[in-house]
Amino acid sequence: MRSFTINQNDSGQRLDKFLTKAVPLLPQSMLYKGIRTKRIKVNGKRAEISTRLQPGDLVELYLNDEFFVQEDQPLAFCSARDELSIIYEDEHILLADKPVGLVVHEDDEGTVDTLINRITKYLWKKGEYDPARENSFAPALCNRIDRNTSGIVICAKDAEALRILNQKIKDRELEKTYRCLVFGVPSPAHQLCRAYLKKDSAHNQVTVSSRPSPEARTILTEYTVLEQDKNFSLLEVRLHTGRTHQIRAHLAFLGHPLVGDTKYGTAKQNRGLPYRFQALCAWRLTFRFTSPAGELAYLNGRSFTVKEIPFSLKDLYKKPV
Rank of each mutant, 00 (worst) to 15 (best):
P188K: 11
R284F: 00
I93G: 04
E236W: 07
D65I: 05
G151M: 07
D72L: 04
L299F: 02
Y88R: 13
S11R: 09
V100L: 08
Y196N: 04
I247E: 02
N143E: 13
D16C: 07
G127P: 05
D200I: 10
V225Y: 06
K33L: 01
E128G: 03
N204Q: 12
T241M: 04
I169H: 02
G127E: 05
A279Q: 03
C78R: 13
G110V: 08
F67I: 08
C180N: 06
G151K: 09
R172T: 05
V59L: 01
K170P: 01
F304H: 09
H105T: 06
E173N: 10
Y298P: 01
G101V: 11
Q278N: 01
E173L: 08
V225M: 11
V59N: 00
N43Q: 11
L102Y: 12
T244C: 00
A161G: 15
G127Q: 09
L235N: 01
T114H: 12
K126L: 15
L296W: 05
K121Q: 12
Q205N: 05
K98W: 12
Y178K: 08
L285E: 03
K314H: 03
V112D: 07
E109G: 13
H240S: 11
D113H: 02
D261A: 10
T241R: 07
T177V: 15
D72H: 14
F183W: 07
G56K: 10
E89M: 14
S201G: 00
T111A: 01
F4E: 03
T224G: 00
L239I: 07
D113F: 02
F311G: 00
Y32E: 04
I152P: 03
V225K: 11
V185Y: 02
L25K: 15
Y298L: 05
P320Y: 12
L31C: 06
P139H: 10
A159R: 15
A252E: 03
P74E: 13
T241I: 01
K38V: 10
T5A: 01
L258E: 07
V185N: 14
R46N: 10
M30I: 14
V103C: 04
N148V: 05
G265W: 07
A252T: 09
F137N: 01
